[in-house]
Amino acid sequence: MKVRFRFSKLGKVRFTSHRDLARMWERAFRRVALPLAYTQGFSPRPRVSFGLALPTGAESVAEYLDVELAAGTSADVAALPGRLSPVLPTGIDVLATATLEAGAASLQHEVTSCSWLVETSGLSPDELQERVAAALAAGSLEIDRERKGQRSVQDVRPGILACEVDGTTLVAELATQPRALRPSELLIAVAGGLEEVRVRRTSQWIQRDGARQEPIRLSTDATDAPHAVRRAS
């Protein structure tokens, strides 16, 4: 049985890394004695897979985790958020769960874009408005990108699916395929000297029947998750 979790990462805990997050989850699963499937081998690890890594320091109300339960076991999926949230650090809250069909595609494979709130400093709201409009009008936006130590100049304009300005905050949808565009790269593409103050991932999107949707929808407004924001803050 495979279970998908949607969770938040808000407040101080956002300064932990992706690796740190994996360890927090492993301890939480042990604390509630949820039987997980383990990898074979010398040093068995639980079969868990996180979606796209969140940059250290960024917040999110749309993180996902797929977990495979030990063979022959099952769990009351609807009860899991209530069991797990209290044993996770403040700021990490399980917002929703869903059972995955056998053979469901991985998050990394399915997610095509993410929505972000990027609070900036360095430009006035008017200047920011102007630069964003110019960037969106441009045919291409070439920036220096680095990946695994390899530097290359790439056009990131196709990766900016949407970008609105609200005061000094950017509300953007950035593509994750073929390669995920990071909020920090968006800022470089929009204007030099623009600094990120606070970044929050509000949605991850998959394509179903020609329309985009979240891997798990929340019953309330998905981009807000107000109770989680409150608890973390």
Binding site: K12, F15, T16, D20, T56, T90, G91, E196, V197
Partner: peptide, 18 residues
């Protein structure tokens, strides 16, 4: 808080341990 985006391993400074 604003410093933490600029340093290595910012989780060293947040506390929040169980």
């Amino acid at each position: 808080e604003p410093i933490l985006a600029k340093v290595q391993k910012p989780a060293r400074y947040i506390g929040c341990e169980d």
